[in-house]
Amino acid sequence: MSSDAAALKDADSPPDESAIERYIGHDEFDPIGTLALIMVYFLILVLMWLFMYFVEFVGNEPTVVGMV
């Protein structure tokens, strides 16, 4: 952690650096929260898409169809 932490301190100090409790380097960071969050988003997208297409759209007849 230490070398990365030093690099960060060198590179920049965020506006409220005091709030930073620990420095996490590249290899120690697994964005598990991001994965969890984005999978929730994925589920919402799939469900909303199916609802919009098969309920809102297909159920909104009459619909333009090819000339039979």
Binding site: N60, E61, P62, T63, V64, V65, G66, M67, V68
Partner: peptide, 23 residues
């Protein structure tokens, strides 16, 4: 047609055609 999927742009010089069933 409000509340349906019959909806087209109408452009001068072009003819829009749409076929739909009205049940």
């Amino acid at each position: 047609l409000v509340g349906t999927n019959v909806n087209t742009m109408v452009v001068p010089g072009e003819i829009s055609t749409m076929t739909a069933e009205f049940d």
